[in-house]
Nucleic acid binder design. Structure first.
Length: 497
RNA sequence: GGUCGGAUGGCCGAGUGGCUAGGCUCAGCUCUGCAAAAGCUGCUACAGCGGUUCGAAUCCGCUUUCGACCUCCA
């Protein structure tokens, strides 16, 4: 039995995952900024870390999964107008800040449900943890690594870098930063360009503001994650996840401020998912090329040829390793849709197979092959969560399942034990770990009865060789999105698209 | 400009030294009243040029090219 290895961005190598407390795992993932609707790019980390969380649990660990909601505090452009993003957008939309935050939080939650992402154990908000953030800033100031200027507080990166490995996570050296950091208004407040804000003084027009020892203002860009992760997971915790684009400056800053505030490194394993690209470019608001989730599900976007089911998108994400870029394309999504449909139908077939083969496997070679394919899935997950290879193995097994049903493979080819392993493996990976669900519309009993009746009428017609009637039923149902399938044994099954 | 990471068959995408990845598409066959589904078979690729090696998509060097980060970003 192999053990779980994950790629640690901090050390840039795969490391064996050993939780701090055996049997328990702490996971923090940077959540959404609820000043706008989530897009396809956002889906990736949440699906990725949902699988991480599911897998840790599958391995028997109790997982505390914390994912924040950023509902205040980020700057549009640091140092320029010091505009709180949430406050500014609210004015444009003529909404109260809390009204907008609630709207986009609800939309985010709805998206997560559609993707079948399990809810985090704790979903803390930035505005709910102003006190903790202020306390943390005070500690950093007391230790001499932050300074106040005109109602704002900055972290002294140079001082930190002189003693500690600042830039290790993102692979950069401070000297480069000093040369390449862009000239911005308000930079003169800082002692060094590389310093970042822990607390910003609120300009008069700023809506969201809180009292602090330094006057009215709002928390800096990075402090919320440090304050909330340490509160709920401890000063050092197991896994911190997020998109690769957050490595610098966000996660680098988290490390520095937490390190000073708590005297220890905050995170043991850093995990970063790669980006979703579109026409070769990262999908992001700075490129103005985002496809919002609602557009994706409705197909209402110039780049979309059709709507895509949330499960198709989830499957599409999991077919690629999380550390590779994933290029958006209609062809790719459509391929995923067909693939998932085929896989899920095989899964449903497998669940219905009831074989009681008490004897040995008639086809020992196939039996061994099946056992091997099943067993490999765990190895693939343990190798830095290679969901792509797990799915490939499920596709290796699909013809075996369909073959047994179709009669191409003898019913006693596999031993009863292997059959059971096959069923358990599919249930475990399809549902529990990959978190996949049926694409089909949930049919009601009434609909099922109607369709059963039509199928019976069609069967009678076929018996009488009245193919006009039988084809009419089949074709009209197909037009309505119900596909009939004539089984070899005379049964008829249907799928609703 | 600096740092880092890619370039795999018609498309998507695994894969770090030798063994068919997988999916989608396409073609043929089996089954079938026809079709669909399913099963079987075929299409066999690793940007280019050198090098290391018995052997390289996989290691090293160079070239071309794309991207990410350096500013809010998942």
């Amino acid at each position: 039995m192999s053990e779980l290895y994950i790629y640690n961005s901090y050390t840039r190598q795969k490391e064996r995952f050993e939780p701090m407390t055996p049997g328990y795992a702490g996971l923090y993932v940077c959540g959404p900024t609820v000043s706008g609707e989530s897009h396809l790019g956002h889906a990736r980390p949440y699906v990725t870390f949902d699988v991480v969380q599911r897998y840790l649990r599958h391995l028997g660990m109790k997982v505390r999964y914390v994912r924040n909601i950023t509902d205040a505090g980020h700057f549009e452009e640091e140092g320029r107008e010091a505009i709180d993003k949430v406050g500014e957008k609210a004015k444009l939309e003529k909404m109260e800040p809390m009204e907008m935050v609630h709207k986009y939080t609800s939309m985010f939650h709805k998206g997560m449900r559609l993707f079948n992402c399990e809810e985090p154990a704790i979903e803390p908000t930035a505005t709910g943890h102003i006190v903790e953030q202020i306390d943390m800033i005070k500690v950093i100031m007391d230790k001499g690594f932050a300074y106040e200027v005109n109602g704002s507080v900055y972290f002294d990166v140079s001082k930190y870098a002189a003693e500690y490995p600042y830039g290790k996570l993102s692979g950069r050296v401070l000297e480069d930063q000093l040369e390449t950091t862009r000239e911005l208004d308000g930079q003169e407040e800082k002692r060094n360009k590389a310093d970042f804000a822990l607390w910003k003084k609120a300009p008069p027009q700023h809506i969201m503001r809180w009292n602090s020892p330094w006057g009215e203002g709002f928390p800096g860009w990075h402090i919320e994650c440090s304050a909330m992760s340490s509160k709920y997971l401890g000063e050092t915790f197991d896994i911190h996840g997020g998109g690769m684009d957050l490595q610098f400056p966000h996660h680098e800053s988290e490390i520095a401020q937490s390190h000073i505030a708590h005297g220890c490194m905050p995170v043991r394993y850093w995990m970063h998912n790669n980006m979703i690209t579109i026409n070769g470019k990262k999908m992001g608001k700075s490129y103005n090329n985002v496809i919002k989730l609602s557009e994706l599900f409705s197909g209402n976007h110039p780049l979309l040829e059709q709507p895509y089911h949330p499960m198709v998108v989830r499957f599409y994400i999991l077919q690629t390793h999380y550390r590779s870029t994933l290029d958006f394309g209609n062809e790719a999504l459509q391929a995923s849709e067909r693939a998932l449909r085929r896989l899920w139908e095989a899964y449903e077939v497998l669940q219905k197979l009831t074989l009681n083969n008490n004897g040995a496997a008639a086809d020992a070679a196939l039996d061994a092959q099946v056992r091997n394919w099943c067993g490999e899935c765990a190895d693939f997950m343990n190798d830095d969560l290679n969901t792509a290879k797990v799915i490939a193995n499920l596709f290796e097994l699909a013809p075996v399942i369909n073959g047994i049903k179709g009669g191409q493979i003898a019913t006693n080819a596999l031993s009863g034990e292997t059959m059971q392993l096959l069923q358990t493996t599919w249930k475990t990976y399809m549902e529990d770990i990959l978190g996949l669900q049926a694409l089909q519309v949930q049919q009601t009993d009434k609909l099922d009865k109607v369709l059963t009746l039509l199928i019976e009428i069609r069967k009678d017609a076929k018996k009488r060789k009245d193919f006009a009637t039988s084809d009419q039923i089949r074709n009209r149902l197909a037009e309505a999105g119900v596909v009939l399938k004539d089984e070899k044994n005379g049964d008829v099954s249907y799928t609703i698209e």
